[in-house]
Design a protein around this nucleic acid. Structure first.
Lengths: 144, 144
DNA sequence: TAAATCGTAACCACTGTAGTTGCAATTAAA
DNA sequence: TTTAATTGCAACTACAGTGGTTACGATTTA
């Protein structure tokens, strides 16, 4: 349903950065792991930067790094940073239909609650935790 | 994110049908309320039919009706009937990268759990309940 | 000054969605 | 038996979102 992989890419980037010990990692290095184009990576990084999760620096030895400790970044933080709309899309029914007229309100409410249930789960998982599941103990220097 | 409105349309159709007392409602009538094309409605109805939630009949006086009581249809039933993939999409990272190699497994697991949390919410809301919120007491004959 | 990197705009290709038309099959009514 | 209303489904189009790519000015270090 969600055709976009930005969320998965965002998580991937954050996990990699969490292993880089605040050293700047270039978008090219990151793109190699994500297996995509550096510009695509920078687009996702831009979102994460706007959300205050990473910071970046241009120039030789430039790149991006975590702006917040991995244990303080939840999957929900990443989700909110990159999401473009709500999980479910409503249609626009006939407003003069007795049912259609109230569908957006009632259904919208219920779907928002469903989305909230999902977000509450995401909130409980941190990048640190995820990184631990992925690579226990790994902390190489990925810089250049 | 989810560009498709099929789920919302499906709910709308089920709520309308729940007010029709097992009488057949034509896709044209349904399309008027949903404010779309009858073929679009029939496409969603086809999914609901495959899931055993409605049945249809061609010919004059034909149409669709609930195959199951509204109280026995959950939003999750409708969701599963029309969904085309999982809620989140994964990317395909470099398998030789120590992190990328395990991202699909670990992240996939976590996102599946997040999706489950949402589904558990949907499971608790029935079409009957939703119809009650939308139009308490309404049960006109919508047939032709 | 040169090289590496970022941020961002611009463009292209692919894909999924909704809308639309068309038609054979089915069913009820005249 | 014929006519009309309806379904199911295939095929086509238009539109929008996504990812990939190129390009270029700005920034920073060596």
């Amino acid at each position: 349903m969600s055709r976009s992989t930005s969320f998965a890419v965002a998580i991937h980037l954050l996990v990699v950065l969490s292993h880089a010990n605040r050293k700047f990692v270039s978008s090219e290095t990151l793109a190699a792991g994500v297996q995509t184009n550096p510009v695509v990576v920078r687009r996702v990084l831009a979102r994460l930067r706007n959300a205050g999760l990473v910071d970046s620096q241009p120039g030789v030895l430039g790149g991006s790094r975590l702006a917040v400790k991995a244990i303080d970044i939840s999957l929900l933080d990443a989700y909110r940073a990159v999401r473009t709309g709500s999980l479910f899309s409503l249609h626009t029914p006939a407003p003069d239909c007795p049912i259609g007229g109230r569908i957006p309100e009632v259904l919208g409410e219920n779907l928002a609650l469903a989305e909230e249930a999902m977000e509450e789960f995401l909130e409980e998982v941190s990048i640190e935790e995820l990184a631990g599941e992925i690579l226990p103990g790994y902390s190489d220097d990925l810089r250049h």
